[in-house]
Simulated scan of single mutants.
Amino acid sequence: MKNGGTNSNGYSPFDAYDLGDKFQKNNVKTRLGNKNELLRMIGVAHANGMDVIQDVVLNHLDNAGSADGSGGPDPASNNSDGNTYKNFRYVSYSTPASSETSVNYLARSGRWPKNWPNFHSNTSHVCNSGDLCGAFFGPDICYYAGAYGQSSNATFNPTQTSDHNRVGARDWMVWMKKQTGVDGFRFDAVKHFEAWAMQDFLWNVKYNASWANGGANMFAVGEYVGSGAQLDTYINDVRYSNGGSEDMIGTFDFSLRQELKNMVSGSGGYNLANIPGSQQTNRYRTVPFVNNHDTFRPTKDANGNYTGWDTGNELGGGHIDPFDPRLAVAYAICFS
């Protein structure tokens, strides 16, 4: 997704419907290319027998406003998080980004616009802290039915109704599946929005996307940093939400990963018998791993060489040293 021209990565989303085919934020392309290039890449992967898993961020947005921020603030914003940049307006065919003024931005009529009542905290869900409500990464999306309302200063200001964000995310998931033909989804930071919302989105992309239905075997995994018991609880919470009974999503096995780190850092004195019991109990599409972008955060020099570790911002127990000779054993266990 595009945000701030081509310099932002996909974890700071602005417009979910912009796959690199809209001129906004001073660019058409995303950091990785345009929509045509994305679709070609997916087609080539499929032609060579590879599935494509789309990474999705549904917890937060960021960088409201035109390329220079104009139009982003709503002076009436009352989310109690100190951030008034809650007017999210997107270009459309009839309302292009012909300038970066607030007048132009606030008249843009692209799909799924958002106003300050769509975020935490709001009158329907009075909460602005903790895993579900804290604005850790940007304005925190609220999926409660009553989280809807108008902007105080946007000119494109359609009337919102109940479940504005829940319906918006559901519709976007189906659109994304139809547009791209991806084979499954990896969801970022799933502890930061409700399990019942996840069940809704996955059920619809599996069974309500017409010819693009993912079906019962569609792959889905959520990034939940927690213990094995917490991972099991999350999977079951999604499964039984909204009257459901189907396992819908797996998780990255952070519990197993912590034990792999203990093994690698054990200086040869580790008991491998600890490994099997460290895995989460619910093995539905669980994803074992060694390092990822949350656990592995090196500091680098101008040439890209490692100079140390940003341990203060590493999650899940921190990095496993890629130069440790025991790393090969960790990978062997993950692939077994």
Score class of each variant (00 low, 15 high):
G5R: 08
G5V: 04
N9P: 03
N9T: 10
P13F: 06
P13A: 07
P13Q: 07
F14L: 12
F14R: 13
D18H: 06
D21M: 09
F23E: 11
V28S: 10
N34D: 15
K35S: 12
N36E: 15
N36I: 12
E37Y: 06
I42S: 08
V44E: 14
H46F: 07
A47Q: 12
G49R: 10
V52K: 12
D55I: 04
L58T: 09
N59S: 15
N63L: 01
A64W: 08
A64G: 13
S66Y: 01
G71I: 02
P73L: 00
P73N: 05
D74S: 05
S77V: 03
N79R: 10
S80M: 01
G82A: 04
N87P: 05
Y90N: 02
V91D: 03
P96D: 08
P96Q: 10
S98C: 04
S98K: 10
S99A: 14
N104E: 11
N104V: 13
R108Q: 15
G110S: 03
G110R: 05
R111M: 03
W112M: 05
W112K: 00
K114N: 10
H120R: 06
N122P: 09
S124Q: 00
F137H: 13
G138W: 12
P139G: 05
P139Y: 04
D140S: 14
I141T: 08
C142P: 04
C142S: 15
Y143P: 13
Y144N: 15
A147R: 02
Q150L: 15
Q150S: 15
S151N: 08
T155P: 08
P158N: 06
S162P: 00
V167I: 15
R170I: 05
M173D: 07
M176Q: 14
K177N: 13
K178Q: 15
Q179A: 15
T180Q: 13
G181N: 10
G181P: 14
D183P: 14
G184N: 11
F187K: 08
F187V: 11
F187L: 15
D188T: 11
K191E: 10
E194M: 06
A197L: 05
F201D: 05
N204K: 12
A209N: 11
S210V: 02
S210E: 13
A212P: 06
N213E: 09
G222P: 11
E223W: 12
S227P: 06
A229C: 00
D232Q: 10
D232A: 09
T233N: 14
T233A: 15
I235P: 06
I235C: 09
D237Q: 15
V238C: 08
R239N: 07
N242A: 07
G243T: 10
G244V: 08
D247M: 10
I249G: 09
D253E: 03
R257Q: 14
K261E: 00
V264C: 04
G266H: 03
G266R: 05
S267Q: 14
G269H: 12
L272N: 06
I275C: 01
P276A: 02
S278M: 01
S278C: 03
F289C: 06
N292Y: 07
T295I: 01
T299I: 04
Y306E: 03
T307L: 03
T311A: 14
G312I: 02
N313Y: 08
G317D: 01
H319M: 02
P325N: 04
P325F: 02
R326W: 05
A330M: 02
Y331T: 07
C334T: 11
C334E: 07
S336Y: 08
S336F: 03
